[in-house]
Amino acid sequence: MVQTSKASGEVFLNGKKLEINTPSDAISAGIGYVPEDRKDQGLFLEMSARKNIAINTLKQDAKAGIVNWGSVNRLSTDAVENFNIRLANLEIRALDLSGGNQQKLLLARWLAIKPRVLMLDEPTRGVDIGAKSEIYRIMSELAAQGVAILMVSSELAEIVGMSDRVLVMREGQLVGELDGSLGKEITQEKIMHYATGASEVLAS
C-alpha cells in the first residue's frame, strides 16, 4: 500500500483538531473507512473471516504481544450473528465468500473499533438485494446510535434514500448542498442539476 501525505486542509471532530498521518492515527481517533474496492483495498482475501473481523483490534486485545484468542473469537462470533454474515465457519477465507458477505465482513471489522465516524465509499456496489438491505439496516442503526456516516455513492436512489444531507462535487470542487432540515429537499433531479453544471435555476 502506498501511503501519501495530505495535500491540504484540516480535520476536526467534535470541535477538536485531529492530526492524522497514518491509518493508526485515524483508528485511534475513532474513524473507520470502508473503501470502494473491498477486494484490492479492504479485505485480506487469503485470511480467515475471523482474522479479517478482528485485525483492527488485535493490538488492544493482546497482552505482552500475545493475542487473546478468546476475545477474538467472541468478537468474531458476535459480528457474524449481528450482521447476518453467511459462512460455513470462521476459518473460511474471505476470498470464498459472496460479495455481500465480504462487504458485511469488512463492515464488521470497522465497527469493532466502535467508530465515531464511518466513511463508506460505494457501500453496496456489487452486492445482491438482500445484502444491500442488511447494509442499509446497519447504517440506519449506527446513525441512530450517534455514529456520523460519510457515504460516497454513485447511486442516486441510494443517496436520496439514505442521506440527511448531501454535498455534490464536480471536478474536485463543492458545487451544491442539499439538506431537508434547511428547506433544501434532497431529490435526484437537484443532485443531477449540481453534478452536471446545468445552467437552469431549480426551485428549492
Rank of each mutant, 00 (worst) to 15 (best):
L105T: 10
D61R: 11
L107Q: 06
L95A: 15
D128P: 09
M119A: 07
I85Q: 12
E46W: 02
V127W: 08
A94E: 04
R74W: 04
A62L: 04
V67Q: 01
W69Y: 14
N82P: 02
V117R: 00
N56G: 08
M47W: 10
G65V: 00
L118S: 06
A54S: 13
N89V: 00
N68M: 05
V72C: 04
V117A: 00
I85R: 14
R109S: 09
I85D: 14
S98A: 08
P123Q: 12
L87D: 06
L43I: 14
L95R: 10
A64Y: 12
Q60I: 14
T57D: 10
E46P: 02
A62Q: 08
L106R: 02
G70V: 01
D61Y: 15
W69A: 03
V127A: 10
E81C: 08
I92C: 01
N73T: 14
W110E: 12
L43D: 08
L87M: 13
R74N: 12
V80L: 05
K59C: 03
G42V: 08
L95V: 04
K59A: 12
S71M: 11
F44E: 02
D78K: 12
R74D: 14
L105G: 05
V80C: 01
K63I: 09
L45I: 11
A108C: 01
K59W: 09
P115V: 13
N52K: 07
N56F: 04
A64L: 14
N101R: 08
A54G: 00
R86N: 14
F44Q: 03
Q60H: 12
K104D: 07
A112P: 03
L90R: 03
N84Y: 07
L95Y: 11
L75N: 04
N82W: 04
L75A: 07
L87E: 02
L95K: 14
D78S: 11
F44D: 03
Q60C: 10
G100P: 11
L43M: 13
R109W: 03
E91L: 00
I53C: 03
G65A: 00
A88M: 05
G99M: 06
S71A: 15
I129C: 06
T77L: 01
L45F: 08
D61S: 12
T77Q: 09
L105V: 03
L75V: 08
K114P: 05
V72A: 03
G100D: 09
G65P: 00
S48D: 02
K51I: 07
D61G: 05
M119R: 01
T57F: 02
G100N: 13
I55A: 13
R74F: 11
D61W: 15
R125I: 09
V117W: 00
E122L: 06
P115T: 13
L45C: 05
N101P: 12
L120D: 13
R109V: 06
V127M: 07
D61L: 15
K114R: 15
I113D: 01
A54I: 02
R125S: 09
F44Y: 11
Q60W: 12
D78L: 07
M47Y: 10
E122V: 10
K114Y: 07
L75W: 00
A88Q: 12
N82T: 04
N68Q: 04
A49D: 01
L118G: 10
E46M: 09
S48H: 01
L87G: 03
A88D: 06
G130E: 05
G65E: 00
